[in-house]
Design a protein around this nucleic acid. Structure first.
Lengths: 226, 226
DNA sequence: CCTCTCACGATTGTCAACAATTCGACCTAC
DNA sequence: GTAGGTCGAATTGTTGACAATCGTGAGAGG
């Protein structure tokens, strides 16, 4: 069944996913110029589908492309990372509010259970940053889809998160605010469970704002240089 | 000079722009299935660049594509249009706030002058909806770029506005709130000129919220059926 | 010694043909 | 008469070769 799903996926889609994760994980360094033929041999396909994938990646802002000059991975400054968090603040605030209005009870229960398991994992793994980052990603992912706003979810999941994760991987998952973030997550979900959209939006905005300030502080301290 | 600009533009870009405007203007009806070979003959190019353009359009959400089944123009419901306005509310609110912090004085003066000329145009043309829509588009465009937030501007100008304009054209430019919107625009710019980001954000959010409610009302009245 | 020009190489953009898959129509069976 | 299956054609996905363009290096001139 899952094979059929993969089978219907075209090779351009495959290349798109592969390159996207490669960029996010940092396997392709930002600013790195990549040749098409080299990628073709590495991904086992020809330049037709590859160019289609490159076009889609460019459209999403992960690549920059100059005609006849080649494509290179987008290189973003620290200032731009902070700008991304400003956008996240308002968009995820909206997502939280709409999730409070529309998220089914079952999904909320699931989300709470996931928070519990994440909490256990983190306590057992003693601040294993990986689980924290993964849990954080999962949480925001669910809120976005829970908003039942298709375009909003698409913009968050398809555009912003990939760029944010790109930095996350590079900065070794920022690794700040160990389980403080989890408490904030829990309160946001509680507000959603109580169908208090205004509160959920406020808490989410504050949550992301805190994360942004944390990054800002680290940059000023010189810990993070991008 | 502009020729050189066009010359460096590749044929895929050309096709992309052409199709985008065609979709926005409604020349390609939503839900319409389009064949690749027909488009090729109409745009005078081969399927290689065309497919690249189609991929980019799909990535932006203007087309939906099922493998081996062809592409069709996205068809959106009235509910989804309202969701777009919810997103615009928070994102353009942020844009207004950041514009108040960063927009150069010269740009603000220019914007004010543009508002004046638009006001004259509208009074002379007695509610020619075209100028109103054009002026509205211009206004929001300038605020987005004025925010000096590259990603925010990209998302607004590259994603949301095209979808909104798609509806605008179809609904004969909604044609509501004749120069009431212009007054709201002026007050927003005044807040930006006074560098009052909080007020600018509030006014912008209210402005878009009013537009959304106006559309919502018309839909309920049955004037607009999408 | 520096700078400008020109040509070469490499890479990208484009094209036309081949293979794979889906949609529709027709036919058969119940 | 309807439901199911099968076959064919049209459309999409993919491939490899051709043409256009840019970056780089060498060479000549100042």
């Amino acid at each position: 069944m899952i094979q059929a799903q993969l089978q219907t996926q075209t090779r351009a889609d495959e290349a798109f996913d592969c390159l996207q994760t490669a960029i996010v994980k940092g396997d392709l360094a930002p600013g790195e110029k990549i040749g098409e033929v080299e990628l073709c041999s590495r991904l086992n396909l020809t330049r037709g589908p590859l160019r289609e994938a490159l076009g889609r990646l460019e459209s999403r802002g992960l690549l920059v492309r100059r005609p006849h000059a080649g494509v290179k991975v987008v290189s973003v400054s620290a200032a731009e990372l902070l700008e991304l968090y400003r956008i996240r603040e308002v968009m995820e605030g909206l997502a939280a509010r709409q999730a409070a209005e529309r998220m089914p009870d079952e999904e909320i229960r699931d989300l709470l259970a996931t928070l519990d398991s994440h909490e256990k994992m983190i306590e057992e793994a003693q601040g294993q940053a990986y689980y924290q980052a993964e849990g954080d990603y999962d949480f925001h992912h669910r809120i976005a889809t829970g908003s039942r706003n298709a375009k909003l979810a698409q913009m968050l999941l398809g555009d912003l998160y990939y760029m944010v994760r790109m930095y996350r991987y590079r900065l070794s998952t920022s690794a700040g605010r160990p389980h403080m973030a989890l408490g904030e997550h829990r309160r946001i979900v509680e507000a959603i469970a109580q169908r208090d959209g205004e509160l959920a939006e406020f808490l989410m905005k504050r949550h992301i704002n805190a994360a942004r300030k944390n990054i800002e502080k680290k940059i000023q301290e010189g810990v993070l240089t991008i």
